[in-house]
Amino acid sequence: MAGSPLRPVLRRVGSGLVVLWAAATAAYLALLAAPGDTVDAIVGEGADTPQIRADIVAEWGLDRPAVVQYLDYLGRLVTGDLGRSYLLQRPVAEVIGEQLAPTLALALAAAGLGVLLAVTVAIGTAGDRRPWLRRASSGAELLLVSTPSFLIGIVLLSVLSFRFGLFPVAGAHGFGSLVLPAVTLALPIAGLLAQVLRDGLDRALDEPFVLTARARGVRERVVLLRHALRHASLPAVTLAGWLFGILLGGAVIVEQVFGRPGLGQVTLAAVTAKDMPVVLAVVTLSAAVYVAVNTAADLTYLLVDPRLRRS
């Protein structure tokens, strides 16, 4: 491959920007196509007279053609100006900025816990050493994957918070209040990841290199951890993008149930009220994180699989 070693990096950044632009534009078009116009959304349930509507149109510059509004929006996006929320009457960057930390804490805790649980369960139940345990675990995983996180959250709350008072119900007050929301969000993730990982482990355990390793007298645990897990984790890493989607979607529900601040609540309120600037900012931010997560996943491939490093 000729040219600068920076080229793949630049290509990555370029395609990332295209994804961002596409996401922002698609969201803009979707909101534009949704029934009812922005003035309706701002008027909401309240009184509605031509004078009020005219005032709103003037205030937000809604009389400009859609194309002009779109270009204006893109232009401001490039300079990092996310605009002002119709509903909350505050700068969007401020609204999102103050909600980012609690969501990040929740997402990282849930992702970490989910992965930890999945790896533990998959390693503990892979192969055909303990078929009963494997069956039980597989059933439990299926149950967790199919249960809405709303229900998991309410059950956990009812038992651990209302009944035994072990954890506080609401808010983001330190570690204690993070436990239940993180577990609620982590369980479905752990369920699916465990299934994928175990499947990968099973297949890896059938490979000739495992036979070779065992023939060399390597202990079973080492075979699993050092040889098979590495192979099995490739498909799991591919799921990183999916994981991110689950975290974001799950956060909406979990934050609502546990009364936690965060982006999920902001998104839900913005979408129901058609608060365009906030929705657009959330979509763009999600797209950016998505690009970052997938890039990280690609890099992880190289780390996990030496064969990929050569090409």
Binding site: S158, S161, F162, R163, G165, P168, V169, A170, Q256, V257
Partner: peptide, 17 residues
């Protein structure tokens, strides 16, 4: 505190939170 789910509000009250 903002607790949007009524079941959660009632639970928070009955558990003294």
């Amino acid at each position: 505190r903002f607790l949007k789910e009524s079941a959660v509000r009632v639970g928070a009250l009955t558990s003294g939170q």
